[in-house]
Design a protein around this nucleic acid. Structure first.
Lengths: 337, 337
DNA sequence: TTGTATGCGTTATCAT
DNA sequence: ATGATAACGCATACAA
């Protein structure tokens, strides 16, 4: 309907110069009250909306923040994005997402796209691009990284202690009497997966139990791989009374495999995951897991970006993973190994 | 590190004018091979990246497409976004998301933000802004709407037949011998919820069964409401042998309630949902539901947007909902009502 | 075919 | 305090 209203038109309608209008709109310094009023009225009347592009071109900033994810549709990232979005709301900055699909190449491309869009800051969630690349980027604009630690920019990196989370989980199972605990690990190329495996190992060792290689299988963090791993576990000759899946999604898959076998959870086998996805509260039975406060993490990261944009230090919080005890774990039944 | 390289610098480096460089970059018409080569080399050498903002300002388009969602973190929308993203990849257009959080006001704000960003087209997913608003928008730029039907722009609207889906589901239960089927409906303000309720009613009526008001409860499409509804169902005096939840998430909640009551699915009670979320394959037991092909829908919508951008007609496909039979439904056990 | 000049809508730097 | 005017980086109508 109405064509784009420009600053010039507002200036004309209110009888002042464009620069004055611009000043008023940006709240910069001194303007006479009457002119201000005239302009504000014209703005309202013409329903003037500043052109973000032109503003960006002139000022050199776009008021948008690039966010590189690995999979928008995954419950984990989805929830973080929501947190980021919430944390940014009201700041005038708009998050722009680009997906790396767990592929370093695509991830690099995503970063390129975002930089090409002249985002004012960048948030990288997980992934595996080279540290050097991120350091380059960091030299150009405010960068925040979740899920990895780059020494040179440690202050801008937020990484939860996955090993500790896995340790807690495993220890919990051990305290419940389990000594033959299977582990469905994540992809070995994935840092988090390795850390969780390490935590599992450490807990066993600390408890004087030995690690049984046959009870460690690798999945890909998706439900189906959890299903297959659990199925294979039953085909093996090593008995076990508990399964620790490296993330909730694989735990779901494993749970289904158990269901198919007619194995009860937690009566026959205890099961734990990692992440505490929203749906883990509503599994049958509700899943014991470790909570990654994704939403709050998103908010924290968003806050830090805003701080860096304001020239301050990121001040990322230190966040501890917490054990969430639910109903998928139980005391080892007497008579079992 | 390297400051932004401009067209002018490329022009200088290759000994031609900026306009020539611009032409080559945009592939417009005739340029001598040697100049072209020189420019291309300079571009590569300087690692020139066009400034999207400047380009947008000059050309009047931003190569970005606004997408209004209701909840990025929901499995439903997350998957659609993935589809849209995929469908747009390679086209040069970048999707930009803004969330309405199921709030008409926020949704309007989201549209404003996107329009302010001068997106070249808009995709609206679900939601409840006034038809008029969308018609206004549609007069300005290519618009595509999922989840509602606006007569004036019917060609640009994609809406699945929710009533039919619910009908199929209910009919399936009836064919399995169930005659007292409870329904956990979605919020009555939600169009899809109403349609599903209507389908449920129609199937009962067509089968000569009467609709029992006490067996119809309203939820809010989230797991917790499904849990509460199922719990209340047991407190009522009307018996039932099956539950039809208006979406998978509520079915999950209901399933947990049943688990708590010690009620087996499907042995004691059959349960169905609606949506076929990725995780429904891995429920215990896997959930019988109706499939909304979210990912493909996303791709279809993206394709149509691209088509409209190219001046063609949207040509949205007609998509049928399909029943997905899994293990949460079983024949009514003899002796039950 | 190629170069020059102008415009896109704002902001910022000057004068005044 | 306020108004011209020059960037911002690119596309394009026009001229050559």
């Amino acid at each position: 309907m109405k064509a784009t209203v420009t600053l010039e038109q507002v200036a004309l309608a209110s009888g002042v110069s464009v620069s004055t209008v611009s000043r008023i709109l940006n709240g910069s310094a001194n303007v006479s009250p009457n002119k201000r009023a005239a302009v504000e009225q014209a703005v309202a009347q013409l329903d003037y909306k500043p052109n973000v592009l032109a503003r960006g071109l002139a000022r050199g900033r776009t008021m948008s923040i690039g966010v590189v994810t690995q999979d928008v549709s995954s419950p984990f990232y989805g929830d973080m994005l929501r947190g980021i979005e919430h944390g940014l709301s009201g700041s005038g900055y708009l998050p722009i997402f680009a997906d790396g699909h767990w592929h370093p190449e695509e991830e690099n491309a995503a970063i390129d796209v975002l930089l090409g869009r002249k985002v004012d800051a960048l948030i990288v969630l997980g992934g595996a691009v080279a540290d050097e690349r991120l350091l380059e980027v960091s030299a150009t604009l405010p960068l925040l990284v979740f899920g990895r630690q780059i020494p040179e920019i440690a202050e801008q990196c937020l990484r939860l202690n996955n090993e500790r989370g896995a340790y807690l989980l495993t220890k919990h199972l051990i305290e419940f009497g389990h000594r033959r605990i299977a582990h469905i690990a994540g992809p070995s190329a994935h840092r988090d997966a390795c850390d969780r495996l390490a935590g599992y190992r450490a807990a066993l060792t600390d408890a004087g139990l030995n690690v049984i290689p046959e009870l460690i299988l690798e999945g890909d963090f998706l439900e189906s791989s959890g299903f297959m791993a659990a199925t294979r576990l039953f085909e093996g000759r090593e008995v076990f009374s508990a399964i620790f899946a490296a993330n909730d999604q694989m735990a779901y898959g494993a749970r289904l495999a158990l269901h198919r076998k007619g194995v009860r959870v937690p009566d026959d086998i205890s099961l734990v995951g990692f992440d505490d996805l929203p749906s883990s509260t509503f599994c049958t039975p509700p899943l014991t897991t470790v909570r990654q406060p994704t939403y709050d993490l998103g908010i924290a990261v968003a806050g830090s970006v805003l701080r860096m944009l304001a020239g301050e230090r990121p001040r990322l919080p230190h966040i501890e993973l917490q054990l969430v005890l639910r109903e998928s774990t139980a005391l080892l039944r007497p008579g079992l190994p």
